[in-house]
Design a protein around this nucleic acid. Structure first.
Length: 587
DNA sequence: GCCGTTTTCGGCCCGACTGTTTTCAGTCG
């Protein structure tokens, strides 16, 4: 049983306990779930090697939860969860996913109207029977229906960050099977789309059957839809489907191209082939029966008169024309971020100390981080006030002395809250003492587009602001972005010398590929950061890099691909050149 | 259920906002 699976079960318990009005116990399970999910070692291994005591040495795991994990890894099920489900036969996860529906609402819905599922709730809301309940009205009904509609649209898709590690693990395992020549993850995963429908894997092997047999007997496989001589289609325990296709070496490139997509990109390539009197399929590029190309993607593209291009930009958004004219950009390479610029610590809502986050960043190969704890008006996170920032600065100074010999620098920063009127919640005198000032919106998400745009631009105008964090505020599959005119924000960012954040956290990725491309076209600089709240989150950086690649970004578009001294110089330069812009060019 | 440099018992994030009310319950971060 993987950490993800254990965490999912603990999280489920947490949600049942929350509905049962056992808040503290619920939070204990929630914390445990988060800890297990971001653990670097498999809990199963820890238990096997060190027993229950080993599990108890993990923070937030005590004897009670260690016992539950023991039962899970030894029996595969958990009596306690079954009991909770019997007592409250309600699909809590499905219902809490609906915005505005929390534990209390679920309890009321169940006791008053016997609502157990999202479908039950949708029917009740549509028929107008919810408004009879206390504290429910027409507006709430509409909100619930809208949220259900939104959830339906994203149904069946998974976050890239959740699936990539599992797919990579399967890829590594497949590569070890005798007879194998090539293995690659294809499909939307290879294109690094934000959400993934299923896992496509393409391979070539001298002994296809061996690969198929091994694949369908992997421990994650819970159901086999079909399995033949060259392909298999299975469901994995996470609920996602995975396809493996095994081809001959000479077809491998064409198959990889075909299964990578996207669909429209393939159609355009086939059109080009047809124009030349050829035919392109997953088996290769053919003139009649003669194979013209197929072993590698490169030779197929070249034969069609195109430059090879990275999968991330195969979306029919100008990449084919660019490939014809040999002007495919050099995209920012994975692993090229030198410092994480959004890091929360236990000073506010992070789980670890500044030192622990620094150690983690060093382990991830970084040479600097910016500590960006929340500020005072974000009371939920116990945001820092001016005095708090000053105290934190002293700790950072001391740590910088310690980490000097490792050539690592901790930057003083903050995720400064943008108030309703666009003003910042920290005094300028305190902001001036920071190396970098990041700002973001954390409240009043329901403003009109005009108001929200004006509010953000007011913040960007502030002469000390360097980075706009969370430019859209979306949570993929959970919350739509707030209404904001992103083009106006981009223009303002350019005008006032502010960089835009590409948030790499798996369900955030605030800026979409199209936004990033737009920003780059307008000459706005980007920063890629993880929004880390725990040491393990540093591993998300490349998800942000993927997003920049999908937006056609190169290394020079991203400020924190530079050394810390160059970064600070560049930030200052951008700000100064913005100040010198003539008036009248503002937005 | 977890945790401990005032504690092995008694705390545990709490204020703003929304939609509903006409003083407040529930959600969110």
């Amino acid at each position: 049983m993987t950490n993800t699976e254990i965490a999912k079960i603990l999280e489920e318990i947490s949600e049942y306990l929350d509905v049962s009005n056992d808040g503290f116990r619920s939070r204990a399970y929630g914390r445990a779930a988060a800890t297990i999910a971001s653990l670097d070692r498999e809990a199963t291994d820890i238990y096997r090697e060190e027993g229950q005591k080993g599990l108890e040495s993990i923070p937030s795991i005590g004897s009670g939860i260690a016992e539950k994990i023991e039962e899970l890894v030894t029996t595969g099920s958990l009596h306690y969860l079954d009991e909770l489900k019997t007592k409250l036969p309600v699909n809590v996860q499905e219902l809490t996913a609906i915005e505005g529906v929390g534990p209390k609402t679920i309890k009321t819905l169940y006791t008053q109207l016997h609502i157990k599922t999202r479908d039950d709730l949708e029917k009740a809301a549509a028929s107008g029977s919810l408004r009879a309940l206390p504290h429910f009205g027409e507006k709430t009904e509409r909100k619930i229906l809208k949220s259900i509609e939104f959830l339906k649209q994203s149904k069946g898709r998974f976050l890239l960050g959740d699936i990539l590690p599992i797919a990579s693990k399967i890829e590594v395992r497949l590569k070890k099977i005798p007879g194998v020549r090539h293995v690659a993850i294809a499909g939307s995963l290879r294109r690094r789309q934000e959400t993934i429908g299923d896992i496509d894997i393409v391979a070539s092997s001298k002994e296809p059957q061996k690969m198929i047999d091994a694949f369908i007997s992997f421990p994650e496989v819970v159901h086999i839809y079909g399995s033949g001589a060259t392909k298999a289609n299975v469901r994995l325990s996470l609920g996602i489907d995975a396809d493996l296709r095994v081809v001959h070496d000479k077809e491998y490139g064409a198959a990889l191209l075909y299964f990578t997509g996207d669909k429209q990109h393939n159609i355009e390539l086939r059109k080009i082939a047809i124009e030349k009197g050829w035919k392109l399929s997953e088996y290769g590029l053919f003139k009649g029966n003669k194979l013209l190309a197929g072993a590698t993607e490169e030779e197929v593209y070249h034969k069609l008169g195109l430059e090879w291009m990275p999968p991330e930009i195969r979306t029919v958004s100008g990449e084919i024309e660019a490939a014809m004219e040999k002007r495919i950009p050099r995209l920012i390479p994975y692993g090229s971020i030198k410092g994480d610029l959004q890091v929360q610590t236990s000073w506010t809502d992070g789980t670890a100390s500044i030192e622990a986050m620094t150690d983690a960043a060093l382990a991830h190969g970084l040479s600097y981080i910016a500590i960006t704890d929340h500020t005072k008006s974000l009371t939920v996170a116990r945001g820092l006030d001016e005095k708090g920032l000053a105290r934190q600065a002293r700790e950072i100074d001391a740590l910088n002395k310690k980490f000097l010999k490792k050539k690592f620098r901790i930057l003083k920063s903050a995720e400064v809250n943008i108030l309703k009127d666009g003003k910042l919640d920290i005094a300028d005198t305190a902001l001036k003492k920071l190396d970098l000032v990041g700002v973001s919106v954390h409240s009043h998400f329901g403003m009109s587009e005009e108001e929200m745009t004006a509010r953000i631009i007011t913040a960007l105008k502030h002469p000390l602001v360097n980075i706009l964090f969370h430019p859209t505020g979306r949570l993929i599959k959970k919350r739509e972005p707030y209404k904001v005119d992103i083009l106006k924000v981009i223009k303002a960012a350019k005008h006032y010398g502010v960089a835009l954040e590409v948030n790499a956290y798996p369900d955030r990725l605030d800026l979409k590929d199209t936004h990033i491309r737009l920003a780059i076209e307008h000459g706005v600089k980007l920063v890629v950061d993880t929004d880390a709240h725990a040491p393990e989150h540093g591993k998300f950086l490349d998800l942000g890099v993927a997003q920049v690649r999908r937006g056609w970004g190169s290394k020079t578009d991203v400020l924190n691909t530079q050394s810390v001294s160059d970064l600070l110089k560049e930030i200052k330069r951008i700000k100064n050149s913005a100040r010198r812009m003539p008036t009248g060019t503002e937005c």
